[in-house]
Simulated assay, not measured.
Amino acid sequence: MISDIPALVSQGAFSEDNILGWIFQLAWILIFVVFMFYGQRIQTMLMLKEIESSLYRLKMMRDKGREIVISTIKETGKPDEDPTPRVDRFLEHVDIGPVSLDPVGIIQRLEHLMDVRNTRFKDEVRLMAPHADETQINNLTNVLEAALALNQIYKSIRHYYLLGKKTLSLYIIMQLQMILPLVMKESEAFANALRAFTLGQPIGDGAGALVAAKLMYGREKRRIAKDIVVSKVPIDGRTAYVLKAEGPGGKVGKPGEAIKEILEENEGKVSMIILIDAAMKLEGEKLGEVAEGIGVAIGGPGVEKYKVEDITVKYKVPINAVLIKEDIGDAVSTMRKEVFEAVNVAIERIKRLIHERTKEGDTVIIAGIGNTIGIGQ
């Protein structure tokens, strides 16, 4: 056997090229073994690193939102004491939903909790900013809600990040990594919303309110429900009750209650209801694209939507919807040009619907749904 070594050497088995080849083969075998036994752990650590980077960005957005809230309150409300401790307490606010084991009456219970929440928020803002007027109070409430949302998102992501890091559970970490792009997109939208709310600028979600504002401009208005105003507007020989949240403060009001009141005032003699609202666009759809449909176009937890559905079933009134397509980022940030231009398209669609589906002398209801910040009437 030993006598064969000179022959192997003479044949080049241990030449320089072959030695390099053996080294590369051994390296690949070593890498394969490492990945076979530690691949999942390495993958987990890489995903944790990616999540950690996003978590840092979320923390920056959360902290910036908090700073904006405090500086805006100091500038607008001119408080006698530092509002920081009260703001920090507010950012830890928790909403507890009604019990759903027995669904009977859940809408009324949910509405009650929402009313309590809204009252509590505005009372807190009045204490933080004692010199702010009503419009500023509504806008500051929106600013605080955006900051609250950022804080809750950050804490939720941090919770699952730390839980995944603690347990090294690939399934927890993988699920968190999968939803992170959507979470970051939503968080960036709320971060951008802070500027619009602080300055009192119209936002994309106010597209429906802007449609109503244009239709009722120059007409006499009256309050029909909480934070909702209505005007009688003649359109093509029909009488249109046009309603929206009372601006220019950041309000959404109770459009369902308003529609119910108008229907009962007219004893159900309404030919059609048209609701205009912003709708989430799909990827590939154009911003500001206008679509038509049927049903109650009111977002949120569903209380106002339920009221409209309930009363329209009673009086058998058809419901039509005109939707302006937007992304989540467009909906809560300063209204973009495409959305503003889509408002005129939506008005033309409304007039066409009224002309084609009602007769002269009929009564219709047009409800502009959405946050009316920066939009008067």
Results as ranks from 00 to 15, higher is better:
12 G>R: 11
13 A>L: 15
17 D>M: 14
17 D>E: 13
33 V>P: 09
42 I>Q: 14
50 E>D: 12
56 Y>E: 10
67 E>V: 12
70 I>P: 14
75 E>R: 13
93 H>T: 06
94 V>Y: 11
98 P>F: 01
98 P>E: 04
99 V>R: 11
99 V>I: 13
109 R>P: 02
109 R>L: 15
111 E>A: 06
114 M>R: 13
125 V>L: 02
129 A>V: 02
136 Q>N: 05
137 I>L: 03
138 N>D: 13
149 A>M: 10
164 G>H: 01
165 K>I: 02
166 K>R: 09
169 S>L: 06
172 I>S: 00
178 M>N: 08
186 E>S: 03
187 S>P: 06
213 A>P: 01
220 E>K: 14
225 A>D: 02
240 A>I: 08
249 G>F: 00
257 E>W: 02
258 A>S: 01
262 I>R: 03
264 E>P: 08
266 N>E: 11
278 A>K: 01
287 L>H: 02
294 I>K: 14
298 I>W: 06
311 I>S: 04
315 Y>F: 13
321 A>K: 04
322 V>E: 05
329 G>Y: 10
330 D>E: 14
332 V>T: 06
340 F>D: 15
342 A>M: 07
344 N>F: 07
351 K>R: 13
354 I>V: 10
358 T>C: 04
366 I>A: 08
366 I>S: 04
368 G>P: 05
369 I>Q: 01
372 T>F: 02
375 I>A: 00
376 G>F: 06
377 Q>K: 10
377 Q>P: 10
